[in-house]
Design a protein around this nucleic acid. Structure first.
Lengths: 260, 260
DNA sequence: CTACCAAGAATGGTCTGACCAATACGCTCA
DNA sequence: TGAGCGTATTGGTCAGACCATTCTTGGTAG
């Protein structure tokens, strides 16, 4: 049918485009926008399945290639997930903090952000949310945190403690603020943090008995709703992480002389 | 040539996959990963141009469709920008906070985040960075802020004040902290904020003379390096925004009885 | 000599039609 | 009734083709 060039589509040929303001570079982009809108409006909810590629071709009146490119963009944006096989297709995904943070972490590492920058932002944020955490933490939150602390101590004993463990703890703390935006933000911080640290092969030594103990103390303070103590502990905890980071980034400085 | 299934590729058939651990669904994804790696390693820097689609086909030994899908993903991830015409092609982009925040804002709106959540997170963050801002703001920062305040007052007079204006101000304040991570985060906050507000058609009335004046006062406090005053002003400013938001979200409450 | 315009080449955007691989459903047969 | 084997559905890829856009180049007119 030739959706190609100079068919009836306005904006295609050299006709006056008086009332068809901006049109179309890239048909696939139009499709993306349409689906995006449907999702935003709630007409497509997580779990819903888009029609098959071949169906979409007919409905949009374009070729399968075009539809596929649109689906690729939607997939890369984290809006849909594509499964193969019968009953496969494009499924609208549950927007998750993880997915968001992941893509973000990628670009953060590329942007001109140092580990120090991230740490600083992290200090601002993780300290700032402490009042909320202390006020809102439920028993379930605290129980979860206890488990994480214990896991951390175990892993520490057999030397398998990773930064991921620490990140999980801090994210769980943030989630006790019971605010999705805050949780996502903290999660976002820890993404690029892990990446840059792991790249530098300094994951393991960053956490030690002292840090793990501070995690323990923090949970206690939260449980006792002691905001001042919590803040003190967190400040010390993050500050030492920052110092350690600076030390690795600039090893010429004198040795701070503490373990952790 | 059939790059298809049971060619020599390990992992395709039922052979022992002893040393070819995870195989390859989706060739385009492999290409994406390769380019991503080149960019991360710095072998491709912003401004560089990737080979043309047809060249990439040959180099990777795949069809153009596959290369194009890979490029689409890279483009959607904000890693490359594609230009048409002679001397066109895929150009590695300068990773910008804007681009990052934009994609993120998209997903934030879809996640189960209310305007209240975002505002709360915003208060934590924007208050937390004030010490940094007050300490580090340069004369240039302050001059820029003055310009924004003046623009705001002008727009206020002729009734064209928008939330975008306010967002620009707050982002500029954050950038005075001279920490890319912080700037990006604040930018991220304002993205979904604008979207949700504009959707609700309450953009205009949210800002008034009082808010604009507070912007002015804030700049003054920053210039005088008066952290306490800055914090006071910002707290009041954000708190009223929060109240106003709550009011719109739940209009049954009594009218707080202030203008702005 | 300059300025403008036309032909050409390079490149992305799209179409068509085909085949393969993966998956789930349903039917047949024991 | 249960297990196994087709078969239809669907995404993944290929091949070759054409068009629109854009830059380059060279020639022509002033």
């Amino acid at each position: 049918m030739s959706v190609g060039p100079s068919d009836g589509t306005p904006g295609g040929g050299g006709r006056t485009n008086l009332f068809s303001p901006v049109s179309v570079d890239r048909i696939s982009e139009v499709i993306v926008e349409q689906v995006r809108l449907l999702i935003r409006e709630g007409k497509l909810v997580p779990g819903d399945r888009l029609p098959s590629e071949r169906s979409l071709c007919e409905q949009f009146g374009v070729s399968r290639v075009t539809v596929r490119e649109a689906l690729r963009v939607l997939e890369a944006s984290g809006l849909v997930e594509i499964r193969v096989g019968a009953r496969g297709g494009a499924f609208v995904t549950q927007p998750s903090s993880e997915r968001v943070g992941k893509g973000l972490a990628e670009l953060m590492t590329l942007a001109s952000m140092t580990a120090g920058d991230v740490t600083e932002a992290r200090m601002v944020f993780e300290l700032g949310i402490l009042p909320l955490v202390v006020e809102r933490a439920t028993e379930e939150d605290i129980a979860d945190l206890r488990v994480l602390v214990e896991q951390g101590l175990n892993e520490l004993e057999n030397g398998s403690y990773t930064m991921a463990m620490s990140a999980a703890f801090h994210v769980r703390v943030a989630s006790a603020a019971h605010n999705p935006a805050i949780e996502m933000l903290v999660r976002t911080f820890h993404g690029p943090m892990l990446m840059s640290l792991q790249q530098a092969h300094i994951a393991a030594p960053l956490m030690g008995p002292r840090g793990a103990h501070e995690h323990f103390e923090l949970v206690e303070a939260i449980e006792q709703r002691d905001i001042d103590r919590a803040r003190t502990i967190m400040t010390r905890h993050l500050q030492r992480t920052a110092d350690r980071l600076a030390e690795y980034a600039n090893p010429t400085l004198e040795d701070p002389g503490n373990e952790e």
